[in-house]
Amino acid sequence: MIKKSPTPRTRAVFGMCVLIFLAVLIMPVSAGVSQSTIAQGDTLYVSGQAPGSQQVALYFFGPNYFKYATAQVNDGSYTYQLTTTSDMSPSQYYCVVQSPGTGSTFSVGPVTVGQTTYITVKPGSGVPADGDSFVVQGPNALQGSQAAYALEQMLKSPNIPDLSQTFTFTIDYPMITINPVGTLYMGTPFTVSGTTNLAAGDTLLVDVRVASFWPMSKEEANAQDSASWSQGDSGSVIVQQGTASGQNFWSFSVNPLHSSQYEVTVTGIKTGATASQQFTVSNQSVPTVVPTTAATTVATTVPTTAPTPTPSPGFGLLAAAGALGAVALLIFRRH
């Protein structure tokens, strides 16, 4: 039986398949976050791609902070939720996402011995590898950027098949602002709004209450339709995504109010952040806007032909008149 050698086209297709397969195996792990800046107490979402892996490991480093976690990979993708940001002080943090690459187990990982936690090679042994480990919890622990850099250098070793990617994020104090409300008028609905660094989708409680009583005569009170106006309002709103990280916005529609001094308070349910502002609802009528009329402009007619100039005595005519006067004076003197 004669074996047929593969044609050039067959060899090319086979080679392409091998290249694609190898690319999937050695493709670096990717990682990203929902927001590069989040409020303390909000949830940080980390997601990415890790083709060929069953799980990824996540290392979080910060000032006096270390956390290790794993996430399952489904169809080449993973998602992890960091829900403990309330325990993390406002600062910059580093996250290293690790994939075992072509292997089935991690070649680098944490090992805890007593009160000390190491990042070490061959974590399955349960003993820190001499010369290939560093401390992340306990005496002489590396923190923040130093710990992230040490782990990166360890994973870049030619003897380590694991893949990784590092990114940073910032945790800020939770903050809510209220835009200036100003003076309002009784019986007129309005909207309060503001900004926040709380995550889009967070819930805010908005409460509008009387801060001080505005005295009103009985005649004024009877003249108003008090049934349609309240002395407060409250409800909840959802934070909306802003145009920049950490700069989201919110708004709340308020029903018509009686005239008084009011205070609006906005509180974040998840983080406990709060803000307040006072404003006045006047018992005066809404000012009537008088429309302004443009002044009528009378068009000036421009003549199409130049007017005939009126002759005026020129220099030559004046000179001639002077000469005649001089001759008359001479004749008069001779006589």
Rank of each mutant, 00 (worst) to 15 (best):
T177M: 04
A295M: 05
T293F: 14
Q49G: 13
T243H: 08
R333Q: 12
V206G: 01
A319Q: 12
L163N: 03
S53I: 09
S5C: 14
N74F: 13
F14K: 12
N179A: 08
A299W: 01
A328H: 05
S236R: 14
Q35F: 12
L330C: 14
I331S: 12
T310W: 01
F169K: 05
T79H: 14
T83M: 14
L257Y: 00
Q224N: 06
K67H: 14
P110N: 01
T37G: 07
S245N: 09
S36C: 07
I38V: 14
V121F: 05
D202Q: 15
R209H: 11
F61V: 04
D87M: 12
I20K: 08
R9T: 09
P63C: 09
P291L: 13
V56P: 13
G109A: 08
Q143S: 06
S107C: 02
K270E: 11
L318S: 06
T243W: 06
P139Q: 10
T177C: 04
G138F: 04
P256E: 00
S107T: 05
V13M: 09
T102A: 11
T116D: 06
I26G: 00
F213N: 15
S47E: 10
Q137G: 06
L317F: 07
D172R: 13
P161T: 03
P291S: 13
T300M: 06
S107M: 03
V281R: 01
Q54V: 11
V29M: 06
G41C: 08
N248E: 02
P189F: 01
S125Y: 05
T43F: 12
Q40S: 05
P307K: 04
L22F: 13
F315Y: 04
Y65F: 15
